[in-house]
């Protein structure tokens, strides 16, 4: 004869027994991945000693606040403008012919070198020198480049 019963007794397993049970499971996992664990400990020590771990912990603990602050900062018009500028600049750059950019950068370099030498010589430049310089093919090329550049920018501004 078995009357229906609803009482279920869980044998009072002590806190210690439960702890031992979960410890045992963890130990099995640890034993299975000894190498990895040892490496992990080395890395942890490094991070701890260098203080990185501490600051990361702090950041993580305050993650919502920090993220809130960061996003709020990012949302300031100056910053969104800056991001937009950067992205626009990045976009413009990516459209420019890289060969031309290379040439220009090279030219700038040699120009700077020359200019530095001139500066060291401490030469005075008069009106006449300026006119004479226009006849120099290198200077002429640079001025032509500059004028065309200005024209291009002007056209761009008109659109």
């Amino acid at each position: 004869m078995a009357q229906p019963i609803t009482k279920i007794v869980h044998p009072a397993r002590t806190e210690k027994e439960l702890q031992e049970q979960s410890l045992e499971a963890i130990l099995t996992d640890l034993a299975k991945s000894g190498d990895g664990i040892r490496e992990m400990i080395r890395l942890l020590n490094e991070l701890h000693e260098s203080g990185i771990l501490g600051s990361v912990n702090g950041l993580v603990e305050a993650k919502e606040k920090v993220a809130g602050i960061a996003v709020e900062q990012l949302l300031r018009p100056q910053i969104t403008n800056a991001i937009n500028n950067m992205m626009a600049a990045a976009g413009a750059l990516s459209e420019t012919n890289p060969d031309m950019t290379k040439k220009l950068m090279g030219a700038l370099g040699s120009g700077l070198e020359k200019a530095e030498k001139g500066l060291a010589a401490d030469e005075k430049v008069g009106i006449f020198d300026l006119l004479k310089a226009l006849k120099d093919p290198d200077i002429n090329r640079a001025i032509g480049f500059g004028l065309n550049l200005l024209k291009g920018v002007g056209q761009g501004l008109k659109e």
Binding site: E64, T80, M87
Partner: peptide, 20 residues
Amino acid sequence: GIKQDLLDPMVDLIKEVEPG
């Protein structure tokens, strides 16, 4: 899982910066 008061500004940020 981010809470709404953080999610909204994040969505706003993406709107504001209008990346490609």
